[in-house]
């Protein structure tokens, strides 16, 4: 494991825990897209089915369990515990417009036509676009709480660090996975506009708000 992969994983972990803590501490999930969070739970569920079939390392298993647990806890907080604060009126992105095409693509373009491999591919494709309802929600309301922008930055940074990890692995291990790389590029590109706003506004102490 190289340093980019490790910091990528840690950045992902920070993002997930930051969101969970924010909701827990404020007792509110206002401004958070439940649809994005349900899709992330679906991403982890379909990707980590190999927890039961393929042991890699204690690190690998522990991280998978943490990601899964936090992801389900987040969905539980949004749709059950703090349901009253959920901003459903602004969370209007049609999730089926992502899930159905992504499912079709996973059937057509995969490494191996087996159930586990198709589900893994589905999770990679879905992850690349799962943030869209959240970004759409911010565009719609025109603003985001600063802590939410820190969450988004850490989440976007994770895949960007994975991209560097894949370049590293290609040079030093001769390893590459085209499905993960293409989806990872798409995923990172979706955050570019947000990264720009984060760096020019949030890091200068301003709240992220979009012009009306």
């Amino acid at each position: 494991m190289n340093v980019f992969r490790l910091t990528g994983d840690l950045s992902h972990l920070v993002a997930i825990i930051l969101l969970l803590l924010k909701i827990w501490k404020t007792r509110s999930c206002a401004g958070i897209s439940g649809k994005s969070q349900v899709m992330f739970a679906l991403v982890f569920t379909t990707r980590y089915l190999d927890l039961f079939t393929n042991f890699i390392s204690p690190y690998n298993s522990v991280m998978k369990v943490i990601y899964l647990g936090c992801s389900y806890a987040t969905v539980y907080m949004i749709y059950m515990k703090f349901k009253a604060s959920y901003d459903g009126n602004h969370d209007t992105f049609r999730a089926e417009f992502l899930i159905i095409p992504v499912g079709g693509l996973a059937f057509l373009v995969n490494h191996e036509f087996t159930p586990l491999e198709i589900l893994w591919t589905f999770s990679i494709y879905l992850e690349s676009v799962a943030i869209l309802p959240q970004l759409f929600m911010i565009t719609k309301t025109g603003e985001a709480e600063t802590i939410t922008t820190h969450y988004l930055f850490a989440l976007g940074l994770y895949r960007a660090l994975y991209l560097i990890n894949w370049i590293w692995r290609y040079y030093f291990e001769g390893f590459f996975d085209l499905i993960a790389i293409v989806a990872g590029c798409v995923q990172t590109i979706l955050y570019c506009d947000f990264f720009y706003l984060y760096i020019t506004k949030v890091l200068h102490g301003k709240k992220l708000s979009l012009p009306a």
């Binding site: 994983d9 690998n60 991280m63 998978k64 490494h111 191996e112 893994w120 994975y162 390893f175 996975d177």
Partner: peptide, 10 residues
């Protein structure tokens, strides 16, 4: 193999 290497990522 490629499959095994791939699955070590999260």
């Amino acid at each position: 193999s490629e499959q095994n290497t791939k699955k070590d990522e999260l």
